[in-house]
Write a protein that binds this DNA or RNA. Structure first.
Lengths: 217, 217
DNA sequence: TTCCTCTCTTAGAATTCACTAAGCTTTTAT
DNA sequence: ATAAAAGCTTAGTGAATTCTAAGAGAGGAA
């Protein structure tokens, strides 16, 4: 049995996992807005339950069991986001907070039905991959728009760490997943880019925005 | 702020309210599967929050504030049940357990959208009335099938205390809300009834079943 | 190397919500 | 009317999750 609180810790651990799959207690506690000692004792608890490998003064690692558990929660979150957008008419900037709650619902049938009604989607409304029922997730091979050059023509495939405000900003610029961006120029000073897409010509995107846009060629 | 636990107590109090609007601590604790002292101390807490009128050794009463709060939770529950049946393809016997969890989601927009997509339904899949956004609920004027007589022709309008098993039983007999029942005879000994409806003639319904079927004329 | 700082851990306490045991009040039955 | 039964309350406990305060370890700078 995994409590709601434990689920949130597991999800955070997976999101924060770097290439090494390691997360510091410090990072974790900041991400969850809790104090370090709280995170620390929870890690001992999750270690007892074999979700986490905990060694004093060492970074945290999810076990395979922990990764799967976390991926299944992320699956529920992303399926929900997709359902809210596709079947209920919400905007992509509105769904995170609701999915954050619904991801904790215990009902295989409920999420199975969502999956089916959506036609077994592979990605959520923000372009993030939806793990399958076994917790397997395709890792994205997208790159940041920041790493592209003038002259490149790329497709907007996903957004990262998408806050509501950032998504609303993208709405005002009519930037949606699938949009083809032609990079006119890159300003070396602040990494801002001038791009054209759809009916819009020579829109300027700040370096910060470009970093958060993931594209494929 | 009302916790998930408090919400469950409030909902139970409203469901158990009799004509007088009174509920005993004993009833409450049995209904929620908790021990009496636990219910008792929660009642003191809810009394402090002005949801309940608590007087030692006297039955419990919801305040107007408490009734509204409870009705809004029941609203979320019943809207969810309707959504699961109408928009997601669940059977009426499958939705209670899921709605029991989703009713605690905090999002006005989420339930507003459900309501809209459903066309502002007045009743849930079991025939129970859905309270409006202000917590106002139309009280049903239906009567139990048990109170009808041979010769009566009535419409199945709702089911009470509908356990999954009871609803599955109704499925096997093709008994749905809206079905017109013609009462052929009533067995005085055990109150069982012989009824005809749709393509079925002379089906026998036990007294227990008849009690749980609410009908209109 | 030694010290400073950042990070991590331990200890102790608060809150919420559950329990058992035992005492008190009200109702019911004789 | 009184005793037994049923229901209600108080008191003390425990688990889960959070916190603050303070001590312990690790890494970098001089």
């Amino acid at each position: 049995m995994v409590s709601l609180t434990e689920e949130n810790y597991l999800k955070a651990l997976l999101s924060l996992s770097n290439e090494k799959g390691e997360v510091s207690v410090n990072e974790l506690s900041k991400h969850l807005n809790i104090k370090m000692p709280t995170a620390n004792s929870m890690m001992k608890k999750l270690a007892e339950k074999k979700f986490v490998i905990y060694v004093s003064y060492k970074p945290l690692k999810l076990t395979e069991k922990g990764k799967k558990e976390a991926a299944l929660i992320i699956r529920k979150h992303r399926l929900t986001e997709m359902f809210l957008v596709e079947k209920m008419g919400f905007g992509w900037e509105e769904v995170h907070a609701i999915a954050e709650q619904i991801e904790h619902i215990h009902s295989v049938e409920f999420f199975g039905k969502m999956d089916e009604l959506l036609g077994f989607p592979k990605f959520d409304p923000h372009g993030s991959p939806i793990p399958d029922i076994n917790g397997k997730m395709e890792w994205l091979s997208y790159q940041s728009l920041s790493n592209c050059q003038a002259g490149d023509s790329v497709k907007l495939a996903a957004v990262v760490h998408s806050s509501d405000d950032f998504l609303k900003f993208l709405n005002t610029r009519e930037l949606k997943l699938g949009t083809i961006l032609k990079i006119k120029s890159v300003e070396p000073f602040d990494k801002s880019m001038t791009v054209s897409y759809g009916k819009r010509n020579d829109e300027v995107l700040s370096g910060l925005v470009c970093e958060k846009l993931l594209v494929s060629k």
